[in-house]
Design a protein around this nucleic acid. Structure first.
Lengths: 332, 332
DNA sequence: ATGAAAGCGCTAACAT
DNA sequence: ATGTTAGCGCTTTCAT
């Protein structure tokens, strides 16, 4: 493997100058820069990241602690984090956790610290309690209210409460007297936020609060909830906590002889890629995973690179309700 | 941050001895070992991985190139890879690619090489063609036939062909004259393997090969295929290339007045967590993602740590067909 | 605008 | 069973 001295020799400059060029530092003449880059290319030279990390004290990498699940939301968020990190010039190191393992998050954080990351992202959709470990680098907590000890703790999340409220308000605006809710598992904070947003919307209109059905995010649990709701008199509008459940719900309603949206309107949550293609096309609220990941990571990188400056204010993404064919005014 | 000399001083030994203890090297007395570990704990000492990597030439990390999708299969495999790597004592660095980006895989590999990984896993369910970059470390290719240049190229994959064949044979064994197939997207090699296995099973029994319907992995595309099949006379058995499509397919059949499994039997593929809980419980073939990840990574780690020894033979996991309520003999 | 020298904190090779 | 001595390949600091 060629080293920077080899490049320097070939380009006829000092090793330090090679370092300058490769790090885009100022005070290098255009001619020298060109020669260095050419020499590097000729030799197939790559900067040694371990040496750089040792000398500079920074690894240019970010660690992520994520729940090991293939569910749409968590997996999409992880992908968003990777892209955002890469766009900001950071590599990503990932450690997954298992639901219900109490020491999981702390252990994962510890292994990231061993690897020497410049910052840590904790993306745990299920609240696993405080993280009992001292973290010496900035931390970004996604979704959950942070309960970690670190020099700098940032937070970013989708505005699930407002999004759920908008979904519910949309149904109320159409004239529905109230809106039923098929919630996600209680221990997911995202599910709780949606429940609260739904509840707040109903309270805001003084609409009655029907009992909540709880699913497990799967289309099938939505189907079961739909069978239940089809038996319940007076159901004209339902807000499901994710699109999969909404799709199962619609099938159950249709199987039970209720038309969607003529008899019952349904709103989902996530706006998954197939939402426009189901029958009827699903009204949903888009989860801005990429945007949240981008905003969160830019906060984190800011904290890493400019530790003494205050973090820039989070933008806050507009709620993106996508109205399609699954919602309509209630039957006359 | 404390360094190993600090630990050495506190424990009253040389710095090298600290290194020995922390690396589980032989020739350290029990007493010294205890003292060193205690001193390390007292100081809250962590090995500096950059220094270790620089001195040893190894990073103890593995890079993964994975398609950036939240679909069940790819996401599950990624999680399996992370766990397997961690169990083997390696950290994971992840780079995602975007479908259809021709230079994506090469670029991702290049960025992993810059980070200095000891080995690379390429987990791309869609064939993106050969990877035009020289890789100086062992490579594990998951699923696809490898077309990369590296000192050592390993491969691991689920036996999708045999699994599809077993699923199809199961239906033929029940007495069905033939089996229809709802395939995945043509550009996914997993979809092609399943198609081939299905086709081989039919050929093996000299059963007629009905035209194939192609879905996009979603329950909804399965539903569309089901509507189509419900119109086709003589359909008594269907093998769907994944469980989501199978579930949509069943709903479509039921919506069209066909009973499952009395009139039509359906087999899925993946054995996702909810497969036992749908109605009727879904017969499926389990994809052993964790096992494949484990096997593949142990091959890779072997190639990393013992470059001159031949790789151990891959075990090859038994096909795991889970028979549930969605399959039965054809109607009389 | 460029270069020389001095580490960063470990592991490797060689003592003892 | 333990210690000593050299680097690993960069960045940093200070000259020029």
């Amino acid at each position: 493997m060629p080293r920077s001295v080899d490049v320097a020799r070939l380009a006829g400059v000092s090793q330090k100058t090679v370092s300058r060029v490769l790090n885009d530092e100022p005070y290098v003449s255009a001619d020298v820069r060109r020669r260095v880059l050419e020499a590097a290319k000729t030799l197939g030279y790559r900067l040694n990241s371990a040496a750089r990390a040792l000398a500079s004290g920074r690894t240019r990498s970010i660690g992520v602690v994520a729940l090991g699940t293939a569910l749409h939301g968590p997996a999409s968020l992880l992908i968003g984090i990777e892209r955002a990190a890469r766009d900001l010039g950071y590599a990503l190191r990932v450690v997954t956790t298992v639901e219900g393992d109490p020491s999981g998050v702390a252990g994962a954080v510890s292994s990231l610290l061993d690897q020497g990351v410049d910052g840590i992202v904790i993306s745990e959709p299920i609240d696993e309690g405080p993280v009992p470990i001292e973290i010496g680098v900035p931390v970004l907590v996604l979704g959950a209210p942070p309960s970690v000890a670190a020099p700098r703790v940032l937070r970013a999340s989708v505005r699930a409460h407002d999004m759920a409220r908008a979904a519910t308000d949309h149904l109320l605006d159409l004239g529905h007297k109230t809106v039923h809710h098929v919630a996600g598992p209680r221990n997911w904070h995202g599910a709780r936020d949606r429940l609260d947003g739904w509840s707040a919307a109903l309270a805001g209109r003084k609409a009655p609060q029907p009992p909540v059905l709880e699913g497990d995010w799967s289309a099938d649990s939505g189907y079961a909830a739909g069978r239940e709701l089809a038996k319940t008199p007076g159901v004209t509008a339902v807000f499901a906590a994710n699109d999969d459940m909404a799709i199962g719900l619609i099938r159950a309603l249709v199987d039970s002889g209720r038309r969607v949206p003529e008899d019952v309107s349904v709103v989902g949550f996530d706006d998954i890629p197939i939402a426009p293609y189901v029958t009827p096309p699903l009204t949903s609220v888009r989860q801005p995973f990429d945007a949240v990941a981008r905003d969160g990571l830019s906060l984190l990188v800011h904290a890493i690179e400019k530790p003494d400056q205050a973090p820039p204010a989070a933008a806050g993404h507009p709620v993106d309700l996508v109205v399609r064919g699954s919602t309509a005014p209630p039957p006359a």
